[in-house]
Computed example of a mutant assay.
Amino acid sequence: MNATAAGAVVLGIETSCDETGVALLRWTPKAPSEGLLAHRLFSQIRLHAEYGGVVPELASRDHVRKLLPLIRGCLAEAGLGVADVGAVAYTSGPGLVGALLVGAATGQALAWSLGVPALGVHHMEGHLLAPLLEPQAPEPPFLALLVSGGHSMLVDVAAVGSYRVVGDTLDDAAGEAFDKTAKLMGLPYPGGPALAALAEHGHDGVFRFSRPMTDRPGLDFSFSGLKTQVLLAWQRSDQSEQTRADIALAFEQAMVDTLLIKCRRALEQTGRRQLVIAGGVGANQRLRSALLEAGRVDGFEVRYPRLEFCTDNGAMIALAGAIRLASGQVASTAATVVPRWDLESLEAVG
């Protein structure tokens, strides 16, 4: 089966960090959302919880254990055999080098055995294109806010593969700041979702933290100082459960306001009228609500993937791979990974 043709089944593999994701996508250029046949995800949260964070070697070993059973499960769910796979797309970076190698080696070996093309996909391009899996998919040009555990960036998207990073983080990413802030207040791993849930019980106005780097021109982010403010507030407080919730709310408000201010500024500077939100922090309900309200007031459209496609998943990798394979891009047979990979270095898709 020709992987560049409509109707080809693309297997997507995601193993960049602590989640093993697999998906099968039948490539339909005019309606990508209709082509998703099956997707499965295994999270390593329980494995890493006792360490308070991801242990790279344990993550790699668990990908080895889980990847093939997940592929078999996806094939069974879709009613397909392995011979029906027409191409393989896998995450080749950025991410943990050992974890990436598991997906790359498996993807390349499977593609070689089947005689089909394989392609390494940029993890953040996968997130950026995840909203295309929705029935009402956005079309470039648009502005993308990519917020996850490892990245916080604003990207001007002229076309698929034509990206200009207009804002980036100078230190901690938004998701990383969520997790570290939660950890310093004694919340369980993963801290981001736990902190957001706790914030629902906070009292508004008890604490207020700064909105970092919004008092000066520019679109870059910095959240390390915000994290320090929370630490000092926590250490000087009575450390009661209500105080914990009040601080969580104030932190979340500061984070959301900062992202909102930067998005509005970027939309004005780029002239875009569509804002795409992607990445794990894009699942935060306070952030979604704030951006939707801002869009209603300012007259720009906000688009985001469903919650299950905000975090790492195989479907976004299958889609990004399918788009590039359809444009004629194919990898060599080497299982190459790129732990650090500049998004702007990607080739534009014709």
Rank of each mutant, 00 (worst) to 15 (best):
A159H: 08
V160I: 14
G161H: 07
G161L: 06
Y163C: 06
V166I: 12
G167D: 03
G167N: 02
G167V: 00
D168E: 15
D168H: 10
D168K: 13
D168P: 03
T169M: 00
T169A: 03
L170F: 06
L170T: 04
D171V: 01
D171C: 02
A173R: 01
A173E: 01
A174L: 04
G175Q: 02
E176T: 00
A177H: 01
A177D: 02
F178T: 00
D179I: 05
D179T: 03
D179A: 04
K180R: 12
K180L: 07
T181W: 02
T181G: 08
K183V: 09
M185T: 06
G186I: 09
L187R: 06
L187S: 06
L187E: 04
P188E: 14
P188A: 15
G191V: 11
G191Q: 11
G191A: 12
G192Q: 01
G192F: 05
P193F: 04
P193A: 05
L195N: 03
A196V: 01
A196W: 04
A197M: 11
A197V: 10
L198Q: 06
L198W: 06
A199W: 04
A199I: 02
H201V: 07
H201Q: 15
F207C: 09
R208L: 10
R208F: 09
R211K: 14
P212I: 00
M213W: 03
M213H: 06
R216M: 06
R216E: 11
R216V: 06
L219H: 05
D220N: 05
F221E: 00
F221A: 02
S222W: 01
S222I: 01
S224Q: 03
S224K: 03
S224E: 01
G225Y: 08
G225E: 05
G225K: 07
L226I: 07
L226Y: 02
K227T: 09
T228Y: 12
T228F: 11
T228L: 12
T228C: 11
V230P: 08
V230I: 11
L231D: 11
A233W: 08
W234K: 09
Q235Y: 11
R236M: 12
R236I: 07
D238A: 15
Q239F: 12
Q239E: 14
S240T: 15
S240K: 14
E241T: 12
Q242H: 12
Q242M: 12
Q242W: 13
R244F: 09
A245P: 06
A248N: 06
A248F: 07
A250I: 11
E252M: 03
Q253F: 10
Q253H: 13
M255Y: 04
V256L: 08
T258C: 15
T258Q: 06
L259A: 07
L259D: 03
I261C: 13
C263Q: 13
R264E: 15
R265N: 13
L267V: 08
Q269P: 10
Q269H: 13
T270S: 14
R272G: 06
L275T: 05
L275E: 05
V276D: 02
I277P: 01
I277M: 09
I277L: 15
G279V: 03
G279Y: 05
G280L: 10
G280T: 07
V281T: 04
V281G: 04
V281K: 02
G282T: 07
